[in-house]
Amino acid sequence: MRRLIFPYTPDALDFIYHLTAGQPYLVQLVGFQLVRRYNDFVFEQGHSRDPVFTVDDVDAVINDSEFYQRGRYYFDGVWGQAARGVAGQQAILKVLALHPDGLMIKQLRIRLAELFRESGLAPLEEKQLEEGLETLKRHDVIQQKGDYWQIIVELFRRWVFNQ
Rank of each mutant, 00 (worst) to 15 (best):
G31A: 07
Q81V: 02
Y68I: 03
K137P: 04
P51T: 02
N63R: 13
D147L: 14
L13D: 05
Q144W: 05
I151E: 05
D64L: 03
D59I: 04
L133H: 00
M1C: 07
Q150K: 15
V52A: 12
I152W: 01
F161A: 12
L129M: 12
I92S: 05
L124A: 02
V27A: 01
V58T: 03
V52G: 11
E44T: 14
F32I: 08
I151G: 09
G120C: 03
L121I: 01
L155S: 04
K127D: 15
G132T: 05
R84P: 03
W79A: 09
T54I: 06
W79V: 00
R138Y: 11
R84F: 15
Q28M: 09
A60S: 11
Q144I: 10
I62W: 00
L4W: 14
A97D: 06
F32V: 08
L112P: 09
M1R: 10
I105P: 05
L13F: 14
W79M: 10
F53L: 03
R37I: 02
Y38I: 00
L115M: 09
L124S: 02
G102Y: 06
Q90M: 09
S119V: 10
L29G: 01
L93M: 04
L136K: 08
G80M: 07
D56R: 12
G102T: 00
I152L: 14
E126D: 15
V86P: 08
A87L: 14
D147T: 13
P100K: 02
G88C: 02
D76S: 10
V30T: 05
D11K: 15
Y74S: 00
K94E: 15
A97T: 04
Y148G: 00
R157W: 13
I92E: 04
R111P: 07
L136M: 12
R138H: 11
Q81P: 00
T9K: 04
I110M: 13
G22F: 04
R117M: 11
P24M: 11
R2F: 03
N162M: 13
E154C: 05
Q163C: 04
Y8Q: 04
L13K: 08
L103S: 10
L155R: 01
G132L: 06
Q163I: 07
L19Y: 07
E66C: 03
V27H: 05
Q89A: 05
E114G: 01
D11M: 10
R84L: 15
